[in-house]
């Protein structure tokens, strides 16, 4: 039983870690701000779920698990909200998302 829980939390923690790493690489490699934000906020939520579930399995039935549950709930509420607020403020300052033909268009403008 114990081994099963250990394996399960190993898997969850490792998957969570991989998720976080993917998010980090995405933030570094994506071409423009909105895609970078996409990479960051999605992996943030998924990574948080996996990691905290993994830790919860280890904590067992205790006060720590309740606190971890609260942390997870608050993270799932605040992190997307913060992402939304950030996207709104970027739009407010007039930042346009880069669309598929943006590169072509700027090339045309450069020619003209």
């Amino acid at each position: 039983m114990n081994i099963a829980i250990d394996i399960a939390s190993w898997v969850l923690l490792t998957l969570g870690g991989v998720n976080l790493l993917i998010g980090g690489i995405g933030v570094l490699r994506m071409p423009d701000f909105y895609t970078r934000m996409h990479a960051a906020s999605l992996t943030d939520s998924m990574g948080a779920i996996l990691v905290i579930l993994g830790i919860m399995l280890q904590a067992g039935l205790s006060l720590a698990t309740v606190k971890l549950g609260a942390i997870l709930a608050f993270l799932l509420l605040t992190s997307p909200t913060a992402a939304n607020a950030l996207a709104v403020s970027a739009l407010l300052a007039g930042m346009k998302p880069r669309t598929g033909d943006a590169v072509q268009r700027t090339n045309h403008e450069a020619d003209a």
Binding site: G16, L20, G23, V27, F33, R36, M37, A40, D44, G47, A48, V51, I52, I55, L68, I71, L75, S79, A82, A83, L86, S89, A90, A93, M95
Partner: peptide, 23 residues
């Protein structure tokens, strides 16, 4: 390059700190 990228990084850093400290 833009200021929003930096805000995004701060926000991401916050979530990472939460997970790091929990572990």
């Amino acid at each position: 390059p833009t200021v929003y990228d930096r805000v995004l990084a701060v926000n991401m850093f916050g979530t990472k700190t939460v997970l790091l400290l929990a572990a």
